[in-house]
Write a protein that binds this DNA or RNA. Structure first.
Lengths: 251, 251
DNA sequence: CGTCGTCAAGAGCACTGCTCTCAAATGTTG
DNA sequence: CAACATTTGAGAGCAGTGCTCTTGACGACG
């Protein structure tokens, strides 16, 4: 929050990419991209807590203090990597969902879930940065991270909302009454995202959201024992099917 | 795994607590308990990655190298704190569940969920150590952590199994067929834990398990936006009610 | 062509985990 | 009670970390 303003000094930064007018800016952008690329590798290899600016500098073939010309501190590099990972996950989810016909709502949901799991298993450390325990002392600047960080949930509620509009949503009996305070929250979400679904569906959607990431996190973080589940694909498919039912998406 | 053997030097340690025969052992146990206590404070304050043996030594009023007389390394202290936290969570869950009549299966499940959430919100950093992204380079020794680490899930499937035995489990329609490989996993779990529930119920129980911790993790780790949900108690209660339905526990 | 801005390098501070040696305190035992 | 043995704490030291500051060089721009 406070960071967001501090990061846009008055008169500087055009928010959009500066299109690299001078060769200096070109070289600078290239170097920052290299730093992010190397940081991504270290992040994927050793995890977020072990991300070291000095190590990145070594790989860059430069002394440690030189990196500070391009990145203010370790937290800023972490933010860059956070956005980088959110975007990669968002792209993967978008591609998977878009490959399914628009009117196959259940199919789109299943592919969304599979895409999240697939990316998480491929990039466990980066997934951990996004959805694991927060890095101590690091607070993600909301201004830069909320947008890419909400792509998956936006996509999910978008699918549910489209199904609702198409009249393809099976209404579960479920606990009918939604308390007033929660109902106010849901109303705010509904207006902000331009949704039509009633409280019950929206609340269930939130549960499906957290449950999807709960299942993925358990698998990625090794919460299942080493040998408790060997058929993890099938377990996840079962979970997805049940969650589709909770969301009202019958295939 | 490998650690487990290295931690029981031949001829030493009786595995059970040595009951502190000599005053030396008494003093030693007291010091270790102090280290764990101080470590717990640091863990709760600054998170797992920021846990520092030197800081613990300072608080203990002793030079840094002295703590290595009691704890082999940082990872071993982390293991002690891991077990410590698992046990505290397990105790909290046990107390909450035991406060509900044995035949109120849905009520027991709800209290289990509430206890997990309550403890997690009270101890976010320690919860993060248990269920967040794994600490890089640290592998929990299974021999010491699996037992306390499985108390909650054992308790959960115990409730479901008791309800099944009592004929109080509402069978949901759900996706009927459970694939063969997953069925084999579930059979192994069933025999190991002495359960009677069919595949479908057990698989749904696994989903309820991961979903419960998914919902708690989202809240503890701040995955909900800062101001998206203000009525989080009610949201969680709604989730619990739906999950009780998934488990077949109708109240 | 000279000025000015940018950049890399190096030194340095405070912190971390961990190892080693040495001396003191402590408990055990003859 | 005194001698011994074990345990313990202190200190130095190594290698690593984030980060700051100063210095010198290089390149772009007026």
């Amino acid at each position: 929050m406070q960071h967001a303003e501090a990061m846009t000094p008055p008169g500087a930064s055009t928010e959009t990419i500066p299109s690299q007018r001078t060769p200096r800016e070109r070289a600078r952008a290239r170097t920052i991209a290299d730093i992010v690329r190397l940081g991504r590798t270290h992040l994927a290899t050793d995890g977020a807590a072990a991300l070291s600016l000095r190590a990145v500098a070594r790989d860059l073939g430069v002394v440690s203090s030189a990196v500070y010309r391009y990145v203010a501190n370790r937290d800023e590099l972490l933010t860059l990597l956070l956005v980088d990972a959110y975007d990669e996950l968002g792209d993967a989810v978008d591609a998977a969902v878009d490959a399914v016909p628009e009117d196959d709502f259940a199919g789109r949901f299943l592919e969304l879930g599979r895409a999240v799991r697939k990316w998480a298993l491929k990039e466990p450390a980066r997934y951990g940065l996004l959805f694991g325990s927060p890095v101590p002392g690091y607070q993600a600047p909301a201004g830069q991270t909320t947008m890419p960080g909400t792509r998956v949930i936006f996509r999910l509620v978008g699918i549910i909302n489209s199904a609702w509009r198409a009249g393809a949503l099976a209404q579960e009996p479920g606990p009918a009454v939604v308390p007033s305070a929660l109902s106010a929250d849901l109303a705010a979400i509904r207006t902000e995202l331009g949704l039509d679904v009633p409280d019950e569906v929206l609340a269930n959607g939130a549960l499906v959201w957290t449950s999807l990431f709960g299942a993925v996190s358990f698998e990625v973080f090794g919460q299942y024992g080493a040998d408790t589940f060997s058929a993890r694909d099938e377990l996840f498919e079962h979970h997805l099917a049940v969650l589709a039912g909770v969301a009202g998406l019958r295939s």
